[in-house]
């Protein structure tokens, strides 16, 4: 593995469907062995981008190489080099674990010896020993997900695309799954993963935020949070958060407020705004303030900020 080599290079990639621009002028690189998170709301253009990178959809303009292969010129070459797994765990429900593995091994052209070896590896990795003859539809979510991952890496691809791989899976299985992703990454596999679980995004080496088809931010999670440099975020807990929001939005020095569970995140225009200036108007209205603390921006803050700057609303 060469950390300085790019596994994926995307240059001004654009895809239109009729008059609708699904992906607009997107450029980024993914280095070998990197776990690259692709974040965005539904319909932001994540899946369209992945489909283009997998050679399934031709770009309208721009170009991309995956594993050194141009996706427009040699989509079949791309398909040989990548693994793909989607949120829908596209396994054959009526086939057993073993039969699913044999089928996917077959369509990737594995010979018998290699298939037998990879089959053992996948069963082992997914913890499916003893369940080889179980129908896929009878497996619990976590196992199905790991089997789907196993089927996607039977041919030992150097680049792996995961399209919202953990949708509908319990937290424990999600942790287990991410440990597998980490192991793959350490062995040099490049992973491009889309997700809208922001805790999963924190596990990526770098993330790209895509909104309305455009790349809005890119970098390590620390880097993208720099969007808030010089604008501290205060977390305020009160008994009447909605009323408090209304009052704070009218307070000078407050850029914006947003609700995070039961707490409020208040973005300030600068360091000169003291917590007291915020709390006193609340108390004046009889709102009890439980706590006020400066917090580091979360990816969710970044996400909302990006959408605000684009002048849009989250889907």
């Amino acid at each position: 593995m060469d950390k300085n080599r790019n596994a994926i290079e995307v240059r001004r990639l654009t895809r239109r469907f009729g008059g609708f621009v699904a992906v607009s002028d997107v450029s980024f690189d993914v280095r070998e062995g990197e776990i690259f998170g692709f974040l965005g709301s539904n319909g932001a253009g994540k899946s369209t981008t992945i489909r283009m990178l997998c050679g399934l959809l031709a770009p309208t303009s721009g170009h991309a190489t995956v594993g050194g292969v141009d996706v427009t010129r040699d989509p079949e070459g791309v398909k040989r080099r990548i693994g793909y797994m989607s949120q829908r765990f596209s396994l054959y429900e009526l086939l057993t674990v073993d039969q699913n593995i044999r089928f996917f091994g077959g369509i990737y052209g594995l010979d018998d010896a290699r298939l037998a070896e990879r089959r053992r590896f996948v069963i082992d990795m997914a913890g499916l020993a003893g369940r080889e003859q179980t129908l896929a539809r009878d497996l619990a979510g976590g196992w199905r997900q790991r089997l789907a991952l196993g089927c996607a890496i039977l041919h030992e691809p150097r680049i792996l695309f995961l399209d919202e791989p953990t949708g509908g899976v319990d937290p424990l299985s999600r942790r287990h799954f991410w440990r597998l992703i980490d192991t793959l990454s350490q062995s040099g596999v490049t992973v491009l993963v889309t997700t809208h679980y922001l805790d999963e995004a924190e596990r990526c080496h770098r993330v790209a935020l895509i909104h309305a088809g455009k790349l809005a931010a890119i970098g390590t999670t620390t880097e993208v949070k720099q969007i808030f440099s010089g604008r501290p975020i205060l977390e305020i807990r009160t008994d009447r958060p909605v009323d408090a929001m209304r009052i704070l939005d009218a307070t000078s020095g407050v850029e914006k407020t947003s609700l995070f569970g039961t707490a409020l995140h208040v973005v300030l225009r600068g360091r000169d705004v003291t917590p007291e200036r915020l709390v006193s108007p609340l108390r004046a209205q009889g709102i009890a303030v439980e706590s006020v603390a400066e917090v580091a921006p979360s990816l969710e803050d970044v996400f909302l900020e990006v959408i605000d700057r684009a002048g849009g609303t989250a889907a």
Partner: peptide, 9 residues
């Protein structure tokens, strides 16, 4: 499932 198959060479 056809999507998964299309992703294969």
């Amino acid at each position: 499932t056809i999507e998964q198959v299309r992703m294969a060479p």
